[in-house]
Nucleic acid binder design. Structure first.
Length: 210
DNA sequence: CGCCAGATGCGCT
DNA sequence: GCGCATCTGGCGA
């Protein structure tokens, strides 16, 4: 198990240290474990406008201000659930987004949860895919990842390759911070462009309508 | 292959 | 009402 002390440092130092760790979910239908290959740091120190905690402990972001080692789960784009590990001292408002990993236990169950995934590396490639493969959802909000009896846990591990860093993905502010960390060469690292897809505007005002 | 746009609901202005 | 820490399938080269 990861210990509380390992999560107390600055979020941009803790985030790369989580690479290689395992996220494990025990459910009635079986166990799935994912070895983390890509994460992103979000800081609650007030300097990170991309963090959900940037506007204070709103109802959604309250978990980010709680004790380290809890799971911050949020609903994204009206469709997906994404998961973070809360880090830093209680009240810091910092968290590490779990962006991608490789399924190391329970591949059959992960495939059943993600029928659209073809290659194995796509099972947990991307933050919403990762939560799907692990069966993480709203019921896991604020779960204690450091409790050995919890159905969702974080186990220690080491990266299998050097760690690289670069801009975070899918955000439109603070894109200069190199707070995305990944295992060099990992096939499960997100292929998305830094900064996200540019927002498209209506191409034509005179487009015929039905 | 790569690029594109829709889906879909919540949080905050 | 607007924007969003995304994913997927469709379409064209």
């Amino acid at each position: 198990m990861v210990t509380r002390d390992e999560l107390l440092g600055p979020v941009d130092a803790v985030a790369p240290a989580l690479l290689g760790c395992w996220v494990v979910t025990d459910r009635p239908e079986g166990t799935v474990a994912v070895r983390l290959t890509e994460v992103e740091a979000y800081s609650g120190d007030g300097t990170d406008p991309a963090a959900h905690s940037h506007r204070g402990p709103t109802p959604r972001a309250a978990v980010m201000f709680g004790p380290p080692g809890r799971l911050y789960v949020y609903f994204s784009y009206g469709v997906h659930w994404c998961a973070n590990v809360v880090v830093g001292p209680e009240g810091a408002g910092s968290a590490v987004l779990l962006r991608a990993g490789e399924v190391v236990v329970g591949e059959e169950l992960a495939r059943a949860r993600r029928p659209s995934a073809r290659a194995a590396r796509d099972l947990a490639r991307g933050p919403a895919r990762l939560t799907q493969a692990l069966g993480i959802g709203p019921d896991d909000r604020n779960a204690d990842l450091l409790d050995a009896t919890s159905p969702v846990r974080l186990h220690t591990g080491d990266p299998a390759a050097p760690v690289e860093s670069g801009p975070r993905v899918g955000i439109s502010v603070a894109t200069e911070l190199p707070w995305r960390f990944w295992e060099s060469g990992a096939p499960s690292v997100s292929a998305f462009r830094p900064g996200g897809r540019p927002r498209s505007r209506p191409a034509r005002e005179d487009r015929p309508r039905e």
